[in-house]
Amino acid sequence: MTLRPARILLYAILGLFCLYYLLPLYVMLVNSVKPLQEITSGGMMELPQVWTLAPWHNAWSQAQVGVEATGLKPYFLNSLLMVVPAVTIATVLGALNGYVLTKWRFRGDTILFGLMLFGCFIPFQIVLIPMARSLGFLNLSGTVGGLIFVHVVYGISFSTLYFRNYYSAFPTELVRAAEIDGAGFFTIFWRILVPNSGPIAVVCVIWLFTNIWNDFLFGASFSDFSSQPMTVALNNLVQSSTGEKEYNVHFAGAIMAALPTLFVYIVAGRFFVRGLMSGSVKG
């Protein structure tokens, strides 16, 4: 194939955009590994003259985030403790909902699904006050458990939507066959539906993980110092530093906050493609 001028131009523009998009990441990376005076002296775009991991170390375990100088470590853990159960519970419940809504139809199921779908469109801000009341009532205010609860409630709408649409294409005859074989409601779910849900489970997990990990509003509203997630802690780190702004530490912290979602995309994304492929082979 010959490279015609138009095509060369196309690639040039694409390359330019690519650089443009990668620029912030470059800035974050190089500034997180250079001493502060190199940044403050105006060398933000240059590669470091002295390479150092001290900002990373500092952000992780020494920086003043809350009352004590603990670094971001405990908040990173908070986020993990929040996001893993929340994603798991929301995904499993969504799968169960999808299973019931498609394979055990009942009167009014479409309306119920429509109402659940409605949850996808409710802006976070609207529910802040009622949710705060509810959490107080449930004695979950300011705890990681409370955050998990909030995220599960919001996540179910999306996970139900994903799984319902996926399972509606799942052959009902398989469920009928399992019924005749003697499998009960949950056995059919775990043994027949779940093992065939790979691709949609990955989509659902990526979506929920990204949203819950990156959430700031609920984290800021419903947590206290002991249960703050990573996003809130990062904000506190950047906002509340006294004296000189330690930009290199901020950059390192910001990258830390972004790493898990990146990790999920890279790891699960591969399974996602694989799942799609195995499904597309005549089955």
């Binding site: 052959p171 005859e173 009928r176 066959a177 005749i180 043994r191 065939n196 089955g283």
Partner: peptide, 17 residues
């Protein structure tokens, strides 16, 4: 169905993939 002492072969075979 499971307790009717029947077995069924479906049009699509309905094998668990």
């Amino acid at each position: 169905p499971a307790d009717r002492n029947i077995a069924m072969v479906f049009q699509s075979y309905a094998l668990y993939p």
